[in-house]
């Protein structure tokens, strides 16, 4: 005998299906958001021209851009172009000999004649003065990076807007740093 549906059963079925579809939709939407590629801002060190705007144009003060050190590229020089002022009086740690305006580079003796240079990120303002000195006279191991523990990831990066060399670009959040040594300058191959 053919089964007949009354109105009550019909409404109940419709409600069930609607709820199921709504739940599946919400789950799908949440999954999409969770798995979508996120992007963050980063400095391409091979495009950077050390203009100083990372220090002056970030919405944060001090800037979220900091100097980082690729130790594998460093020559551990005694006469470091990124640490010592041009025309320094002595080759030591005295303030008048240091290039960094905030003394954010710490120099440590390793063995004659090698010295290690560490960046104190609490003091670094991202001015790139040391980066320019290191790139001109050394190997370019000092370079700028946006630190993502500080960066608020603005929709439109205030530094990217004024960067004269288009060095600030979006990179995937799962690989947020462009540290020298771990990637190469693809414009110079």
């Amino acid at each position: 005998m053919k089964k007949t549906h009354n109105r009550r059963e019909f409404i109940r079925s419709c409600s069930r299906y609607s709820l199921g579809i709504a739940l599946a939709g919400v789950t799908g939407y949440a999954l999409k958001d969770a798995t979508a590629l996120q992007w963050v801002w980063q400095v391409d060190p091979f495009k950077c021209t050390y203009c100083g705007r990372c220090a002056t144009h970030c919405v944060l003060n001090p800037s979220a851009v900091k100097c980082v050190h690729a130790y594998a590229l460093c020559g551990y020089c005694d006469l470091c172009g990124g640490y010592l002022k041009p025309g320094h009086i002595d080759r030591d740690t005295a303030a008048e000999n240091q290039l960094c305006p905030t003394a954010a580079i710490e120099r440590k003796f390793i063995e004659e004649p090698y010295y290690e240079y560490r960046i104190n990120e609490d003091l670094c303002i991202g001015c790139a003065k040391c980066v320019e000195g290191c790139s001109a006279f050394g190997n370019g191991s000092l370079h700028l990076q946006i630190r993502h523990n500080l960066c608020v990831n603005c929709n439109e990066c205030a530094i990217a807007r004024v960067c004269p060399s288009d060095a600030i670009k979006r990179v995937p959040a799962y690989d947020p740093y462009l540290v020298k040594g771990s990637f190469s300058d693809d414009t110079n191959t």
């Binding site: 041009p86 025309g87 807007r161 004024v162």
Partner: peptide, 18 residues
């Protein structure tokens, strides 16, 4: 502060004396 403008860099690495 439009991108095309190049104000002087207050943190420039200056070796002009040499």
């Amino acid at each position: 502060t439009r991108p095309g403008k190049r104000p002087p860099n207050p943190f420039a690495f200056d070796v002009s004396d040499y």
